[in-house]
Design a binder for these strands. Structure first.
Lengths: 177, 177
DNA sequence: TGCAACCGAATGAACGTTCAATTGACAGAT
DNA sequence: ATCTGTCAATTGAACGTTCATTCGGTTGCA
């Protein structure tokens, strides 16, 4: 039911969603009161999926720098391996839906809470510069998203070398000297 | 005619565009063959506006680092001062329209050509690390956009200090050691 | 027998687009 | 000055389509 969102919210009619889910339109309305709620829930689902993808396999025995590298790579891998969800979420963030979602939860975009915890921990252990976490997460997420978009549009190939170069950049930016 | 795009492409009917422009619907169709073309042209317009806003006031007498700071600040200022265009463009990038626009020009998003020239120059004068420019511009734009979004959603205040912190991060990431 | 899940044709509103009619500005002729 | 023909600019009611949503009916399990 997730895969047809490549035509935009409004370019994807309920009839098509129904067809690709192999259910009738009526059935969808049995579970979701409206298209809006469906999209909102889809967003929650994606967020939670990404969340666990990235933070479930965090290995706390590594030192902070290695964890940082791992988390960053997980972000980018998730986006690469789930382009449907990535596109959907990016679309969602820049649409008026996002404000609706924001007003219903206190979360930021990109399920940042755990990321913010992670960055805060970096400051605590003196691995990251003492900066407003919003600034740090802006830098972190911004770079990951921008890279993933470039990969998605075929401007960059997702290669270990490119990714390493990028992590090197962001790490040098945020690490303590 | 630019200001009503805060409800999304599809949330903004031609009738509303007409009303807010104080013209009749028919008049719009006298100038634009379709809504799609209208949006595509609006995108070109925004891109060009941003482009000249940022690069027109570049001062080549400054050393590279100072130019870098200036350009970055211009990006962020443009986004702050033209939230309507910023929202529109972000929406555009993550919508299916973008692919259409891509197929008609060879430009990347964010009018990157001049930015890429600028970054290439940084490598030449040995101010920036020798890296794929796509990687460098990913980092540059990603951070600027992500910061601007945070400002737009009220998570960060646009203050000199925050901006300086952020530039410090990105600069430390990309500069030669 | 009851009830939840499921179906999809029917409904009505909203939208992009069309087009016949109107206006207004301008040039040349009188 | 006045008239006249031309043509681009403008108008908005009307059209046809598409879409989200509804609802009366069906299925299948407990």
């Amino acid at each position: 039911m997730l895969l047809i969102q490549e035509h935009g919210f409004h370019g994807t009619p309920m009839s098509q969603i129904a067809k690709s889910s192999d259910v009738a339109i009526g059935t969808i309305y049995h579970y979701f009161p409206s298209k809006e709620v469906l999209i909102l829930q889809l967003y929650d689902y994606c967020k939670q999926q990404m969340h666990s993808y990235i933070f479930d396999e965090m290995d706390k025995s590594l030192d902070y720098k290695e964890q940082f590298f791992l988390v960053f790579k997980c972000f980018c891998s998730f986006y690469r391996d789930h382009t449907d969800k990535f596109s959907f979420m990016e679309q969602f963030y820049s649409s008026p839906f996002f404000e609706i979602a924001q007003s219903k939860t206190s979360d930021g975009p990109y399920e940042e809470n755990k990321l913010i915890d992670f960055l805060l921990r970096g400051i605590e252990v003196n691995a990251l510069k003492k900066r407003d976490v919003c600034i740090l997460s802006s830098a972190f997420i911004g770079v990951a998203v921008s890279f993933s978009k470039s990969v998605l549009y075929g401007k960059i190939k997702f290669e270990e070398k490119q990714l390493d170069d990028l992590i090197d950049i962001i790490w040098n930016g945020v690490k303590t000297t």
